[in-house]
Amino acid sequence: MSITYLLKRVGLFVLVVWLGVTINFFLPRLAPGDPIQEYLGQLAQAGMFVGDPSAGFVEEYRAKFGLDKPLWEQYVNYWIDVSQFNFGLSVVDYPVEVTRVIRAALPWTLGLLSIATMIGFFIGTLLGALMVAAPGRWKHLLNWSMPIVMIVHSIPYFLLGIMLIALFTVTWALFPVGGGYTLGESPEFSLNGLFTLAKHAFLPALSLVAVAAGGWAIVMRSMMVIVQGEDYVQMSRAMGLKSWRVFYSYQVRNALLPQITFLALSLGFIVSGSALVEVVFSYPGIGYVLLDAITVKDLPLLQLILLVVIIVVTLFLVLLDVIYPILDPRIRHETE
């Protein structure tokens, strides 16, 4: 990997982050509707007294959030603020800093998503690999499960979530309907606390895992079929290597490459990817906060969430670029 190549890649990624943040800055500002008015509208809908919106205080609030200035000036100010790690106050939760709103929501999302993504990846990949390489009878049994895997994979995960709620909270009241923890309590670090956490996370995680595992299994199965026919697999068998050795070091090792690519990409979407599941299960994560911020146009909050999302996804793209040649020595970075 040469220095110029590295510089070129880093430059490209900086460009992508800048363009992404810029689009995120202008799009909500150009769309119709004003954050302060939207918020007042929401309060009025909830039956609160908001006073006369034509009164000066709307203007005052607009000034407080810098919304009264021309767009380009807001844009310059935004970058100055970002460079000083000053992300401002939330419009809806005024006067709470948006960093605090995000710090409260992030652990929920990261916990749920990272665990669900890894479990889904592991189960699905193993299932797909065994569908091709398991010994005789097991292979048939697994392949009979294929139609079920395909049907489950075809269900959008948030609709599967609705089905799970209907089954496991309404028909059989086994799990809580929603939320991340017992209402009104904050999580404690004890066996009991962990159990409560797991009970709340189980159904959202199940809806993510079931759908994703099917996808991993189907792709892994195809890759295993392709690898199966390669000469080196035949050769390793002919050499008399133990069958688990052929399975692990020759088949799975090579079939895994595209899986790793997709895993890195789906880990990149760990922050933003679960919005719908979080809404369906009222899980207090980033996705939930993001959709709230979108509907009421809480600009400072929206901007910080999107900044985090963009940086995380881009980081995983870079990571993928760096680790891929290590995983697959056939791919070497061109040194143009």
Binding site: L19, G20, L290, V313, L317
Partner: peptide, 10 residues
């Protein structure tokens, strides 16, 4: 890449 890193739902 830019369209890829921005959440499309947004």
């Amino acid at each position: 890449d830019v369209l890829f890193v921005i959440p499309i739902l947004f």
